[in-house]
Amino acid sequence: MTKNNKYIKKYTKALAISALSTVLLIGFQAQAAQQGHLRVSSNAEKMIIVNQGGKKAYKFIPAKKVLPGEIVQYKTYFENISNKPAENINIVNPIPKHTVYLPNSATGQNTFTVFSVDGGKHYGRAGTLKVRGRDGKFHPAKPSDYTHIRWQYKGRLAPKTKQAVSFRVRLR
């Protein structure tokens, strides 16, 4: 077992309490949050089709006017604002309520992306997940079954560097 994993176990309880208090403190109001070594910010953009020299092109505009059926892209930036490298970075994003994850839309440089279909209890690669159907048997999960996405950043994020992950949903 690595040193890091030992720490994870040791601090799980403290982490849970701290996570809960963070949720309570931040609530739903924060646009961007800054704490400790990482600065995290996120945005939502709507995908629209525009005519670019007679050809269809996709453009992203701030998600302000959004109607059912439209596609929204969420992007999360994480920047190391300290002078020490950050490691074991995990980005967890529940799929927003009333939206459906768009297949193959999760991106992130130097990341390993996994999904959950059980509210974030277990994660697996896209295509490996199964859900229990009404017939009691397990079926391959559909993108609409996804409840969470997790990006595991490979390696360390050097000081003063910024990375981003993104995914897209369709508003039901």
Partner: peptide, 10 residues
């Protein structure tokens, strides 16, 4: 429609 992302790190 609310989206909340959480980042854990060491």
């Amino acid at each position: 429609i609310s989206n909340v992302v959480t980042v854990n790190y060491q």
